[in-house]
Each structure stands twice: as C-alpha cells, then as structure tokens.
Computed example of a mutant assay.
Amino acid sequence: MADTLKNAQQRLSAVASSITGGLVGAGHQFPAFEDLPKVEGEPQGCLWGFFDKDGKKDEIGTLNLLTASLVTAASREIIDGTHIQLDWPLHNVQFPGFGRKVFSQKKVDLMVSLNFKSMDDELHINTQSGSQWDSLKHFAHQATGKYYNGLTHDEATRTDTNGIHNWCERGGIVGRGVLIDWLSWYEQHKGKAPSAVSRHEIPVEELEATLKWQDTTTRPGDIMIIRSGYVRWHNNASEAERKSGTQENSIAIGMKGCEESVRWLYDHHFAAVAGDTVAFEAWPPKFEEGWCLHEWLLTQWGSPIGEMWDLEKLSAACAEKKRWTFFLTSAPLHVKGGIGSPPGAIAIF
C-alpha cells in the first residue's frame, strides 16, 4: 500500500511539475541574472519594476508567482490529508532578542464588566519575536535606505506601502512547500550538527546535497523551507542557555550570504523562503560584502522571509512518508501596512 501511494504521488508530482513549469515560465519570463535591466543606484540583479502592472508599482513581489494555476497544481500534493501547523506557540521565545518585548496574554473575565459568564483575552506580541513572516517593508538596503520597489525609509515610516495587507487581499500565501531538511542530512553524513547559536553558514552545495539525498526537485514558485536546528536547540535548551543564545547574543545559524547563494536563489525563482532560525540567513550578515540575503530577498526581489518556524513535526512526517513536498497555506494577520506577522502556516500532505 505504501509503495502504491508513493508511486501515485510521484506520478502526480511529475505531472504537476510539467504543468507549473510551463505556466510560471509563460506568465513571468525571467531574464538571466546578468540580463536584468539595470536599476539606477541598485546592484545588478534588482527586480524592481518587473512585476509592475498598468503603471502601478507592485507591492507583493515574488508572491505574483502564486497564480491560480500554480495553486491548483500544488493541491495535487494532498494525498492522505495529514496536516501540520508550523507556528511555534506565541509564548515560546522566552527571551526575545534585539530588545523586543516578551509575549503577554491578559485573560478578561466578562462577568466583571458585563455580568456574562464569558471570557475574552488581550494579547501583546512583537511580530518579530516568534514564528513570523517579514514583510517587504521590514528591512531596507542598508546603504541606500530603500525597501522593495524603491520605497524610501521615510515613506515606509508614514505610509502603508508594501504592507502585509497586500498579501491578505490577494488571498494569503498558498502553494507548494518544499522542506530542505539540512539538519537531518548533516547528522547522517557529517555527524554532530553545528551549534544553532553560532554563526554557522549553510552553503548552497549542502542544500543541493540535501535535495539529492531526499530525491526532491524544486520548481519555480515553490515556498522553500530550510531546517537548520534552531527550534530543536531552543526546545531542549535550559533557561540560562536560552537567555544567552537569544537575548544576550544576536548570533544564529542560517543560509550563507554570498554571491553563490544569491544567484542560486534567483535561478530557482521561489515565491517565498522560510526557515527555523532567527533570520533565515546566518546572522549577523556581512553587509560590507554586499550579499546580505535580507537585502536581496526582501528588498531587491520582494520575496517574503519566514523565520523561526517550527519544523520538528514536519521533518518527522516527511521522513516517515519519504516525501519532502506538500501543499502549504499561510494566513498572515490582516493588518493594514503590517510589517511582520505570525505565519498561520499549515503543511498538508
């Protein structure tokens, strides 16, 4: 039975691959990195203007790749109905880094004010202090002070441009998710994994090796997710270790920020990327070298970045099913001009 399901999934995946590859290519003809039109003041490889339509500046970037046809093809990933939410509990980060406030919940007894036997609650969250999406107005190119599609920092502080509400109004984020379980690959092939609270850089060649080991092929428009081990570390760390690793030291494992990584990400044309670590890329970045992935993904291409997603149950399910692709839905908080949001992400097999 397991072999039959696997064979059926492989056939459906092959069909979907042929369908989506053509549709994405037909809808968005991406030039080679070197052939992209030069944008004044920005490095070669900038996509500003690429998704603009009818004279209106685009505000959703590579989410434009998530067309109805691509979503329909991605739905063929659903075979047995297993579903896993990828949000960490909001209270999980005990000591948020970068001076951010701790999550708090106030439970309100309505008997006091309304004489109803009923409850409300009031939440305080910093949207960067747990599982999150970074919007296209979260991080600017540090040298120019500009966000995606030329939004200036001054404009970002006083307008809703590039806010997460644009994602919600288009129906959220829905497509094919791909887990690159680098942590499992590393531990099987190299031994003990590097510390999640070290600035260990994950290179492209190891991501490719992981995909090969999983027998997984990516497609344009995929939502690519890397498991590096940060959430597992945090789940098993002591209170003192958590405080040291998250609040007192702003250092974390992640994808290597370099020219090879930038070109690899561009050539794969992902709709969005995510991971289980603090900043997706190894942090802090080396801004002076010009390959900070936040600047390329969020600023140059308009690609959302998901951070601190809980990939532990997802990893176990993928290993059990021997498939690392799935249907993915994400419903961010619908906040006008939103800068970050819990992902509300669910993987469905």
Rank of each mutant, 00 (worst) to 15 (best):
H83C: 09
H83M: 04
L86I: 01
L86P: 04
L86C: 06
L86T: 05
D87C: 11
D87V: 10
W88K: 13
W88G: 12
P89R: 08
P89Q: 07
P89S: 12
H91S: 13
H91A: 13
N92Q: 06
N92K: 10
V93I: 14
Q94M: 04
Q94Y: 04
P96C: 02
P96R: 00
G97R: 07
G97Q: 12
G97H: 03
F98Y: 04
G99M: 07
G99A: 07
V102A: 11
V102K: 04
S104D: 07
K106L: 11
V108G: 02
D109K: 07
D109I: 02
L110M: 10
L110R: 09
L110V: 06
M111V: 00
L114C: 07
N115T: 10
F116V: 13
K117N: 01
S118K: 15
S118L: 14
M119C: 02
D120I: 03
D121A: 05
D121H: 13
D121L: 09
E122G: 11
E122N: 08
L123K: 00
T127M: 09
T127D: 13
Q128E: 15
Q128C: 14
S129L: 05
S129R: 02
G130H: 08
S131H: 00
S131N: 09
S135N: 10
L136W: 01
A140C: 15
A143M: 15
A143D: 15
A143G: 15
T144Q: 07
G145V: 04
Y147E: 12
Y147L: 03
Y148T: 00
N149R: 15
T152Q: 10
H153D: 13
H153Y: 14
D154E: 14
A156T: 09
R158G: 09
T159A: 01
D160K: 14
T161N: 12
N162I: 11
N162L: 15
I164H: 03
H165C: 04
H165G: 03
N166R: 15
N166Y: 12
W167A: 11
E169H: 15
R170Y: 05
R170C: 08
G171Q: 02
I173V: 02
V174D: 00
R176Q: 06
V178Q: 07
D181N: 00
L183P: 07
Y186W: 12
E187P: 01
E187G: 10
Q188R: 14
Q188N: 13
Q188A: 13
Q188W: 10
H189S: 03
K190R: 14
K190T: 10
G191M: 05
G191D: 05
K192S: 04
A196F: 09
V197I: 11
S198K: 01
S198T: 04
H200Y: 02
H200F: 03
H200C: 10
I202P: 03
I202L: 05
P203C: 03
P203L: 00
V204N: 12
E205Q: 12
E205C: 14
E206L: 08
E206D: 07
E206V: 08
T210C: 06
L211V: 08
L211M: 04
K212R: 15
T216A: 03
T216E: 05
T216Y: 09
T216Q: 05
T218K: 08
P220A: 03
G221F: 01
I223A: 01
M224V: 08
